[in-house]
Design a protein around this nucleic acid. Structure first.
Lengths: 189, 189
DNA sequence: TTAACAAACTAACAATTGTTAGTTTACATG
DNA sequence: CATGTAAACTAACAATTGTTAGTTTGTTAA
């Protein structure tokens, strides 16, 4: 079990505050106070407020990109790949509840890394859409506007971080399979 | 066609900026500059920055509450009510693309009206969940955790404001019926 | 004991924040 | 012309912002 460095601890606490109030509304004094130190002391460990946000968002975005590449190169059919995507989101979101908030809501406050982030996101969505189109072509999934299909599934998955903490009783395997059922088979009987 | 007052114009422009950068990151000078005037001049029309946010969020939240009450008192069955809810979200979101961003992302910056907003939201979710539970009981919809079902549908609907502007070609009737199909019947063939 | 280093501190900075006070301008109504 | 009003302006404020410089403290290694 690797020890958490002081820098990692600051980033973790920052992510928690960013989730509660958003990046812009969190001051370095807020963050320092939560750490039990003075604001200036933070700079022994981190370079800037901006750097904290960059780290939180980019590391998560790259994790999703990596997961998508693995799924794409798997030999599953389309529905199988979708189920793997759902699992990927459940896994990453549950392990990074706080960071997911920044990824969703504060990416526009990136500066030098903003274009890189956007490329990762666009590529991810292209891959996702590609899987859906393949499924339509092969007759695996229903022939409906793939854009709306992707939107519907992806926004649900991207918002998982809001709901997961509320349901500590619900285990993650169960959540994944319930989401599979709802997102893929619908709710109609 | 009622003329837009200067105050309404400021609120509309503010909502647009809030969508781009979030409430906290938008300064009164940003807003004034977008209006083509000086920051101090804004105060001839509005009371405070906080007031602008209150107005944007509460008016939208009340609009959703009102819509839900009408749907609940209708004589539709459960699936019919769900379709009406989808229509409600498509309608309000398309008419208030900017405001919806504040409703989703900046409600935590409400002060005196925060508890009132939270009550509206909790009540709305209770009503929504009630419709789902009724549908499960009557055998209309599949017997799956209603919490996850609501989460899935509601987050998709709440995020509509992100996607609607990108697809100007897609008309709203069509979007509603595509969403009906995807959210209710799923994507599996 | 001494040297090195991690990690805290105090004090201060220049810039930016929301907001107020008081004034000016332009136009419509009597 | 005189008056009232809507809507802009300039100037300034006290508070807060992210950050830097320089210093102190406590622990570890030689």
């Amino acid at each position: 079990m690797k020890q958490e460095t002081r820098k990692e601890e600051i980033i973790r606490v920052a992510a928690k505050l960013f989730k509660e109030k958003g990046y812009s509304a969190v001051t370095m004094r807020d963050l320092a106070s939560e750490m039990g130190i003075k604001a200036a002391s933070l700079y022994n460990h981190i370079n800037s407020k901006q750097d904290i946000l960059d780290t939180i968002i980019i590391s998560l975005a790259e994790e999703f990109t990596e997961g998508m590449h693995i799924i794409q190169s798997s030999r599953e059919n389309c529905i199988g790949k979708l189920k793997q995507i759902i699992q990927l989101h459940v896994k990453i979101s549950s392990q990074n509840i706080y960071g997911m908030a920044s990824l969703n809501n504060d990416w526009m406050h990136l500066k030098t890394k903003r274009d890189y982030y956007k490329k990762l996101r666009v590529d991810y969505e292209d891959d996702f859409r590609g899987i859906l189109k393949e499924g339509i072509a092969s007759g695996e999934i229903v022939d409906v506007n793939p854009e709306v299909m992707m939107f519907s599934i992806l926004t649900t998955l991207r918002s998982l971080y809001i709901w997961i903490p509320k349901k500590e009783d619900l285990n993650l395997e169960e959540l994944s399979s319930t989401l599979n059922q709802i997102l893929i088979d619908g709710i109609n009987k």
